[in-house]
Computed example of a mutant assay.
Amino acid sequence: MSLWKNDKELFQIAHEELFCALVGDILDTMGLQNQFVSRQVKPVADDMVVIGRAKTVLECDVKDIALEDHSDPLISQPFGLMFKALDSLKENEVYVCTGASYDYACWGGLMSTRAMHLKAAGAVVNGCHRDSNEILRLGFPSFSVGAYAQDQGPRGKVVDFDCKVNFDNIEVHPGDVIFGDRDGVLVIPDAAVEEAFTGAIEKARGEKTVLKALQQGMSTQEAFDTFGIM
């Protein structure tokens, strides 16, 4: 029997009881040992937590392309498909963008405002963000490799979305669960969600028992031998 009825309940439990390292531990036991994106990807504020279904977005650099001479209307279009990708966000989805260099920002304040209106869960970009003060004021969970004010307008285009993408050599499919906090960002394949989060919830609740035992003086070896958790 599942410990949750739907995504909303699962994500609420995750916010209240879980953290990324714990879910990562369970994924390790499942043989999924390469699910954390690069440690360079950090939240704009340390207390930001993101969890939701992936809205995958593929961006590419265009700064060396003569846009006025290009025959592809997508490349000549401002920001490519970025507006369509952003406007298609649904409740509890995470804007997951990769493919760009670090020479410009892939996420910012106005994008955060639109995403919040659509009830999206957050943004995780394999690139830079800008408008840090605005993102902090909004409190919208945003993760990137760092702040850089340079605009993507003349430098990058979104060329596809709702497609499989490669984020730091991790395959991300639309609908995979993204879970991030200050310690890292995890990609949990859709097929692994039930097992991974069930195990993580059970371990989190078991760790409370271990914590109480340690506080009462039990040694770490005895605690591990007794509860199998550490």
Rank of each mutant, 00 (worst) to 15 (best):
G109Y: 08
H173G: 00
E207Q: 15
C128F: 03
A200P: 02
P78Q: 13
A223I: 08
E222W: 00
F179G: 01
D61V: 14
V159S: 01
D64Q: 14
K55P: 05
L214W: 02
N169E: 14
Q40R: 13
V49I: 15
I188S: 03
L118H: 03
A105R: 04
L27I: 12
I135P: 06
V187M: 06
A120K: 03
V158F: 07
W107S: 14
P141F: 07
D64A: 10
I201H: 00
L136S: 01
K208M: 13
G24E: 12
A191W: 05
D28L: 13
F140Q: 05
D61E: 12
D131G: 06
E9T: 12
P141G: 06
C60M: 15
Y102C: 03
S38T: 13
D162L: 13
L27K: 06
F197N: 10
I188V: 15
R130W: 01
D47E: 13
G24L: 04
G228Q: 10
D162H: 10
V23N: 01
A66H: 08
D176G: 07
G108E: 03
S219W: 07
F227K: 04
L138R: 05
C97D: 04
M48A: 09
G122F: 10
F36P: 04
K119E: 12
A196E: 11
T113N: 04
E68P: 00
A200G: 07
Q12T: 15
D131E: 05
Q215E: 15
M82N: 12
N166K: 08
K8Y: 09
D176Y: 07
G52C: 10
H15V: 11
N34I: 06
I26Q: 07
V57Y: 04
R155A: 11
N133T: 01
A54V: 10
V210H: 00
L74R: 07
R182N: 08
V158P: 00
F36Y: 15
A204R: 03
I170G: 00
N6K: 10
K203A: 15
A105V: 08
V165R: 02
Q216F: 06
P189V: 10
L10A: 09
A115T: 07
V210M: 05
G153S: 14
P73L: 11
F224H: 07
Q221D: 11
V210D: 00
P43W: 07
N169W: 01
T209H: 06
A45P: 00
G180I: 11
